[in-house]
Amino acid sequence: MRVLVADDSMVMRRIVVRTLRQAGFDCEEIIEAADGRQAYETTLSESPDLVLSDWNMPEMTGIESLRAIRAAGSDVTFGFVTSEGSEEMRAEAAAAGAAFLIAKPFTADTFRDVLEQYVA
């Protein structure tokens, strides 16, 4: 599985990758993006199997990035990993084409429970 992890925080990108592995997911390649625009451009150029994205990022927010990715025709599995998990944001994410929203803080169990239905 090739995974794009988008977050403006270096440490959160590292924690997300670590948690994916702790949850037992086999990541053959990890691609990182430090803002929403990088996430958009890299998703289209690298075609990952899964995008895990923060919501609140510079350049483009995560939701703007997702909308641009869908507008460009990509149907990549896209999920948010964000510090904000209100019902309104979950609905907005789903309407834009997100598969799930994981709220920070999270555990490996959370990743396993949420992701296993989307990852072969």
Binding site: D8, S9, M10, V11, M12, N56, M57, P58, T82, S83, E84, G85, S86, E87, E88, A103, K104, P105
Partner: peptide, 30 residues
């Protein structure tokens, strides 16, 4: 830079949870 990044992410996570309690229309800064 890593110290600042980690402490900022702590503030982001705690602030994100607080934001969820103070109103649906609120906006969280970086």
């Amino acid at each position: 830079a890593e110290v600042a990044d980690a402490l900022g992410e702590i503030a982001n996570m705690v602030g994100g949870s607080v934001k969820g309690m103070v109103g649906a229309t609120a906006v969280l800064s970086l």
